[in-house]
Simulated scan of single mutants.
Amino acid sequence: MDTSDPDLLPEGLEDRLPREAAAATRVMRTIHGVMEGHGYDRVLPPMIEFERSLASRMAGISSRRMFRFVDPQSLRMMALRSDITPQIGRIAGTRLSAAPRPLRLCYAGQVVTIKGAGLDPAREKLQCGAELIGVDNVAAAAEVVAVAIEALQAAGATGVSVDFTLPDLVDTLAAEALPLDAAQVGAVRRELDSKDAGGLVDAGGAAYVPLLYATGDFASAIDKLAAIDAGGVLAGRIAALREIAARLDGRARLTLDPAERHGFEYQSWFGFTLYAEGVRGAVGRGGTYRIAAPDGSAGADGEVATGFSLYPDALIDLIAASESAADKLFLPLGHDRAAAERLRAIGWRTVAALTEADTAAQLGCSHVLGPDGPQSL
């Protein structure tokens, strides 16, 4: 990395200039407005917490992904959050532990990781999401998916699609229907994730190969999954997926990849990934899970929850690139201040001249305030 320029930003970090920053603000407000409209109350956890709390509150969140440092006051290790979801779990399990359930909470803020993921070098991202805590059923799952779709569409996303998965599929089948030794489970999961039929056979998971083909458009994929359901052990999950899809009532394109587990390390029986037209990669992910205790254990004692996280940065870039410059009204020296105030009250953005040399064109204005009101340039 070239360090000769003192103003060079570290890899994976960037400034958002006025147009992008304005788009980011609108997207975040819109997403929050949708969640608030469905009864989700916003909380604002801090950017920094004790490392132990952040790293242990949810399985699958590794402290190796977080920036860490020693707090000079407590002399304890601190960390910069890489995911807001564990913080919501902490709030729900401590300060809001006595609040009525189901508890609906939402959030929006920046998260930072030490290293980008895959082909995405970004190390700082905007994360917006909602958590429905205390309930784990079809109604909760359908509500969460529907709110996530509505929030994305309201923010400007088009061609939204949702890919369903069953994160505990291998564990469920391996227990009895398609038995695996404990040592084989991890290898079978990995080969299913990589969609490698030969690798599955080599790992002792030949019986799991048909799962690779129960993917694609939801209606046909769910029928394929039902056809290969060994002993009906997945019947309840298949019925739940069908009901969730029916409740969404065509709001987005639905697909199914039942064996997908990458990114769903802490989800339980249901997970989903969100995509949007023109946006590279996923724009969100969610599902059912159990909130871990402070020692990192979840098990049967962790409180059930269903939620989603949106990462709208790529969507923001797409929106900002397609938008024309917003109107701005130039206010000459000696302008009518009362008129300018009335115009701002109805939504105009004004830019006041500070010297005789200031002009509307120089300041990027589209209109100028004249005797009869705004005049287009």
Rank of each mutant, 00 (worst) to 15 (best):
E260T: 04
A227E: 12
V201C: 04
L256C: 10
L178P: 09
Q184G: 06
D249F: 01
T215G: 02
L173H: 08
G263F: 05
A214F: 04
V185A: 07
L166E: 12
D168K: 02
G199H: 09
V145N: 00
A214H: 08
A140M: 03
L200Y: 07
A203N: 11
F264M: 06
Y208K: 14
A240G: 13
S220A: 11
T215S: 02
A245S: 10
K195V: 14
G236H: 03
A203V: 11
D193T: 05
A197R: 11
A221Q: 14
A151K: 07
A146I: 04
G134K: 09
A207I: 00
V160W: 08
V209H: 10
V188C: 14
D196Q: 04
Q184Y: 08
F218K: 02
A245K: 00
Q267G: 10
A219Y: 06
I149V: 14
L212M: 05
P179E: 08
A177V: 11
E243K: 13
A141C: 03
A197T: 08
L234C: 10
V185L: 03
A139F: 09
V162Q: 00
P179W: 11
A177W: 12
A207Y: 00
F164E: 07
F164V: 03
P258D: 07
A219L: 01
T215L: 00
A154F: 10
A252T: 00
V147Q: 04
A214R: 10
H262T: 12
V135Q: 14
D171T: 13
A148D: 02
A214D: 08
D168V: 00
G250I: 07
D193Y: 09
V162E: 04
G216M: 09
S161V: 01
A139H: 02
G216I: 13
A206K: 07
H262S: 04
H262E: 11
G231T: 01
V209Q: 14
A227L: 01
A141M: 06
S268F: 06
T215M: 00
L241Q: 04
A183C: 07
E265H: 15
G186H: 13
G156F: 02
N137H: 10
A175K: 15
L200R: 04
A151M: 06
L169P: 01
P258R: 06
D223S: 05
L234F: 11
A221I: 13
A139I: 01
E265C: 08
A221S: 15
E265S: 10
L211E: 10
V209D: 04
I149E: 05
D196R: 03
A154H: 13
A175Q: 15
R253G: 04
Q184V: 07
L225I: 11
L211R: 07
V201W: 06
